[in-house]
Amino acid sequence: MIEDEDIDLLLNDLFDLYGYDFTSYSRASLQRRIERLCMLDKFPSFAELRYRVRNDPEYLKRFVEEITVNVTEMFRDPSFYKSLRDDILPVLGTKPFIRIWHAGCSTGEEVYSMAILLKEANLLRKSLLYATDLNPTVLEKVRKGIFPLTQMKQYSESYIASGGTRDFSSYYTANYGQAKFDSELSEKIIISTHNLVSDSSFNEFDLILCRNVLIYFDKKLQDRVLQLFDASLGTLSYLALGTKETLKFSVVQNKFKQLNREKIWKKIE
């Protein structure tokens, strides 16, 4: 087992040498991820992991990719996407132009799900989807829009459960075990690194989606990020979080009103 003090040392190294600040990440999850990485990469001791991180900038990339959780899927929680279709897109559709921010988008499955919703609502032409993550490696995957073909059966089922009526396979081309999504979708996606811990607001949005990202942050950092979102939302705009995340007890809770059972809030002031 890795001690708390060891993790502190490692986090200080990461900040001092590379500028990555993980000190406000949820400690229980970080500890698991670090222990897992020690096992995966067969470090005989924590000290050796620390030495490698300090002295091998190439390894740092892998470290950051493995320490952050990059598990995501298309149309996860179909009822959430159904609410986007039925309740949110009709309102956003009244605007001349739609800006959506996927904060902490990981490999981009949710971004492509959103692009499909917009296309089906005939709104994709006037929309831009900003996909950001702290991790450049996962953003490369968003850019390519290529996901494993083995997942498509489940994604297709979730798509249908979200109210989709088309043939899901019409959105991608299958090749060598991979599904490459249409460039019509990816053309509308703007990709950039952005670190929610240290970077500031960069635009005004009509909808921000940040699902299952805040769970990895401690309360203080959650508040910081929620204030950043608040500052990045215009009038008549929405914020969407993961099914077990909440604005309750946060610094911005009075500025937002939850719409329905789904974790979607409308900005009210």
Binding site: S26, A28, R32, V69, V71, N212, I215, Y216, G242, K244
Partner: peptide, 9 residues
């Protein structure tokens, strides 16, 4: 002594 959630593997 609070919970946190994790959506890893």
């Amino acid at each position: 002594r609070s919970f946190s959630l994790d959506y890893s593997e």
